[in-house]
Design a protein around this nucleic acid. Structure first.
Lengths: 156, 156
DNA sequence: ACTGACACGTGATTC
DNA sequence: TGAATCACGTGTCAG
């Protein structure tokens, strides 16, 4: 899927969410035109342009992460940058409630029905297990996901 | 903790670096000049200050949401604004895996023990149930625009 | 010294 | 219209 490859393309696509102001990065070669190491002015402008491109990369990374967050959360109501985070918070809380409810159901089922052969010794605090898997998953940050979400590539 | 040392008055230096946007907005000064007030500069500065305070509120709201997102996600590795979102994505995925695993466990337990009356027919899409509870939670969303979201459905 | 992260003000744009 | 949102460049500050 790899949305948000910027730079003057995907005009129709990002118009739903972003405002179309990526045309300025089309002209960024004009800003970082040349740096002459002999002149101090060129040195300063080179440093300024490096700061500019670094900041631009930072902004792009953050937007990409925000897109990835939006893609994992179902039922996005608004495309805002703040509403995406709000919906993500609500979805995380609903998932926590879901896990707690299902685990209470499983405990009831085990106590009712037959013998329990599973390994839920510490299921009292329900998101313990998810936390551990999350921590084990967070060791390596490149291409580790193996869940149905492969296209997000949140790494780096 | 927040630093408020600003108030720089070098006003022409920022105009020097606007060369790429002035290509497009070279004529926009005439557009923003139809305020028929007695002092056009005063009106323009008033609207500029309103824009400033609006933008400041927007930034504060977004930071607040980001802090709230950080508070619901356990095991935050870094305090960065991008790492918070990355950890939230990983946590959501781990919660999805957790729900799927627990539901498969519950289906196995039910098939062992007694009659299963739940809706495990479509549990391959395991977070269906969490999605419904999440949908029931946000009650004010009007008409659930489904067309732009369906593109993102392939990744969850 | 230098990189990375962040808040700020500002022009532009959409509804 | 006007309010809300966004990307951008810039200054600043910590490691």
């Amino acid at each position: 899927m790899e949305c948000f490859d910027d730079e003057y393309t995907n005009y129709w696509e990002t118009n739903m969410f972003l405002q179309t102001q990526e045309l300025d990065s089309y002209f960024d070669e004009a800003i970082s035109a040349y740096y002459d190491s002999s002149s101090p002015d060129g040195m300063q402008s080179s440093m300024a342009s490096k700061n500019i491109v670094s900041e631009r990369n930072r902004r792009k990374k953050l937007n990409e992460r925000l897109y990835a967050l939006r893609s994992v959360v179902p039922n996005i109501t608004k495309m805002d940058k703040a509403s995406i985070i709000k919906d993500a918070i609500g979805y995380i809380q609903s998932l926590n409630d879901e896990v707690g409810r299902i685990q209470s159901q499983i405990s009831e089922l085990e106590s009712n029905g037959g013998m329990s052969s599973s390994n839920n010794a510490n299921f009292g605090h329900f998101d313990q297990e998810a936390t551990t898997t999350y921590c084990s998953k967070l060791k390596r940050s490149t291409s580790f996901i193996s869940s149905p979400i492969e296209v997000l590539e949140v790494s780096q």
